[in-house]
Design a protein around this nucleic acid. Sequence first.
DNA 1: GTCATAATACGACCGCCATCGAAGCTTCCC
DNA 2: GGGAAGCTTCGATGGCGGTCGTATTATGAC
Lengths: 115, 115
Amino acid sequence: MARPRTAARTVDHPDLSEVALQQVLEALVEPVRRMLVSQLAQAGEDKGCGTFDVPVSASTLTHHFNVLREAGVIRQYYVGTTKMNTLRADEMEERFPGLLSAVVSSSVAEGAGVA
Amino acid sequence: MARPRTAARTVDHPDLSEVALQQVLEALVEPVRRMLVSQLAQAGEDKGCGTFDVPVSASTLTHHFNVLREAGVIRQYYVGTTKMNTLRADEMEERFPGLLSAVVSSSVAEGAGVA
DNA sequence: GTCATAATACGACCGCCATCGAAGCTTCCC
DNA sequence: GGGAAGCTTCGATGGCGGTCGTATTATGAC
């Protein structure tokens, strides 16, 4: 009863003005989360949660996506049973100029992508 | 006997090619360390360890400076009993383009400086 | 309806790191 | 020499976060 039967599942996203630098850095300092971000950036398109190549269980993966979403780094939406992910790159660039792109660049350069 | 009587105390610094992104992010994610970096950047000149405005004890402060130095973010040298600190901004810019400057900018913008 | 797939919620565990106080070392100054 | 200032080392403590397995829910296919 938490949600009407006919409504699609929705996901809450913070306005980036509400997000602190601390939160973004905490999100990006975790190696697995940085892999997710790197792979998403390299993909060039939205990706389902299950399509990432990371060495953790599904429940841990959910946790990491939550952290990234709450930090404003990604946007999520449902497509059937699949939860899709997009980078909020432009918004992040406005809020924390140069930060996300610098992290992604260095991360990809170090091989955090799909190999 | 660990050090000749007449030699000045020296400090070891990593070559930035040996430093990983992970290490730098771990260094910069800590709020106190980010305050140190911000205040150092804003000062525009080298600063002694004891001249920073942070809410931790001296021993904790030593720990934070060690982490920053080992991550290649700062360079340290002794002047008498005072240990001085410099940002390795140019080297960091070469190794991790845009990263340190982005963090410092956002950090200062959020008021991590001296107020 | 039944089943399979995708993801979540929950609870527990464990390791790491920031923190401190006390004691120690190095250098400077008188 | 004696003392003080500046920083370090050591050991202990506490809290937070990443991890997992299991059970559960939501959707789509048949």
